[in-house]
């Protein structure tokens, strides 16, 4: 996949978003995944240990590169960000695990909170801890976990997240408040045993 946006990708995304074409989705996702992985890899190689990572920036950039924006409806876009967030999380957590085993140097890959998340998280968060906490949250509240996942790894605004999940913005905000507070409590507990 080169730097130029690919028309076929747009076509695939449209087929999936507008006509529910599952085959198109199956063709599309590996491409998105590969691109995200490559970009995350390239990014991380340049980085020093302990450096922070803007997952959402990576997703945004993948989107810009892959998709010709004008021809995309909101639905396609939201769908893209929906799955991209999940992929990004998987890629980063896998990498963090591999890296940790390889180096035994412990927690090195951290994410920095995006926009409104930044408030009150005075420290970066360890990725593996975050992943574990998100999975735990999903076990009793899938939606809140999904919203949080989108906040950390995706590129959707609260508004868009609401539309993607079919709930109001007010609900997303409320859910996010609770999810954030719980995650933070969880993560600070771990940090100071």
């Amino acid at each position: 996949m080169d730097d130029k946006p690919d028309r076929d990708l747009t076509g695939l995304l449209q087929a999936w978003g507008e006509h529910g074409d599952v085959e198109a989705r199956d063709q599309l996702l590996p491409l998105v995944y590969r691109d995200l992985q490559r970009r995350a890899g390239a990014y991380l190689r340049r980085e020093r240990a302990g450096h922070t990572l803007q997952a959402t920036a990576l997703v945004h950039e993948a989107y810009l590169r892959l998709i010709k924006q004008d021809r995309i409806t909101w639905k396609n876009r939201a769908q893209f960000f929906g799955v991209a967030a999940e992929m990004m999380r998987r890629i980063l957590v896998d990498r963090a695990r591999a890296r940790k085993m390889e180096k035994r140097s412990g927690r090195w890959l951290r994410v920095t909170m995006h926009d409104d998340m930044a408030l009150g998280w005075e420290k970066d968060v360890d990725l593996i801890d975050l992943d574990v906490a998100l999975t735990e949250l999903a076990s009793f509240d899938a939606r809140k976990s999904q919203i949080a996942e989108q906040r950390f790894f995706g590129g959707l605004s609260l508004d868009e997240t609401g539309q993607l999940l079919g709930v109001s913005v007010a609900t997303v905000e409320r859910d996010w408040q609770a999810a954030r507070a719980w995650l933070r409590a969880r993560l600070t507990q771990k940090a100071t045993p």
Binding site: L53, Q54, A57, H60, T112, D115, D116, A118, L119
Partner: peptide, 17 residues
């Protein structure tokens, strides 16, 4: 490089999109 998106160091406290 990629943290450029949130690079602005002088952002006001962010509570709204």
């Amino acid at each position: 490089p990629l943290s450029a998106v949130t690079q602005s160091p002088t952002m006001a406290p962010l509570t709204r999109e």
